[in-house]
Amino acid sequence: MSTPAPARALSAARTTATAARVLRQLRHDPRTVGLMILIPCLMLFLLRYVFDGSARTFDSIGASLLGIFPLITMFLVTSIATLRERTSGTLERLLAMPLGKGDLIAGYALAFGALAIVQSALATGLAVWFLGLDVTGSPWLLLLVALLDALLGTALGLFVSAFAASEFQAVQFMPAVIFPQLLLCGLFTSREAMHPVLETLSDVLPMSYAVDGMNEVLKHTDMTTAFVRDTLIVAACALLVLTLGAATLKRRTA
């Protein structure tokens, strides 16, 4: 090797190599990819006929779920994938190499983000064109929020994987981290109608803004300031948690 590039905080080549590697791993696991892509579609389909008599309810819950699915799937996939990376020793090996922590995280975010785009595009397309989801705004904005949600899920999954010693524990973080947000995000009842304490709590949980953002697109033709605020909050949360996740990657471990 003549002149190996030094390890910088973020190297485009190493990030894309990592993303390509993650996607290559997924390609050897078509069942996981199939499940990730088909299940949201199936759930939306189910939901449409659960609310057969009330199309309005399907509109609001359907739009919210379009934001929640990518968050949950990416959370699960990332937490297990990074846990495997930690337990198999490949993380230790990578961190002994000139790989920046940012490269690894950005690589994962890029790969799972690409998968999330496919997942969200299919689910949104199905909901809007085949199941009659009545969106006032542009479906592209729905897709944008879905993508940010996926990033948030990736970030949360990466972060909690540091606190899981086994796959069993990692899976248990799903109900611990995701369910409270699911209950408080305004999916079941509007956030204003909750107990004031819970309402405040829901104000600081990122999923609330993901769902709010989806509902803004549902009700308004153009980008409202509320929509911009919601998406910015979700994006900022994703970035913050990704940074926290990077801090859990240690080159030196006991």
Binding site: A5, A13, A17, T18, R21, R93, L94, M97, P98, L99
Partner: peptide, 11 residues
């Protein structure tokens, strides 16, 4: 291929 790309990156 992957580990090589980390050690010696770039096209």
């Amino acid at each position: 291929d992957y580990f090589a790309a980390i050690l010696d990156p770039g096209r």
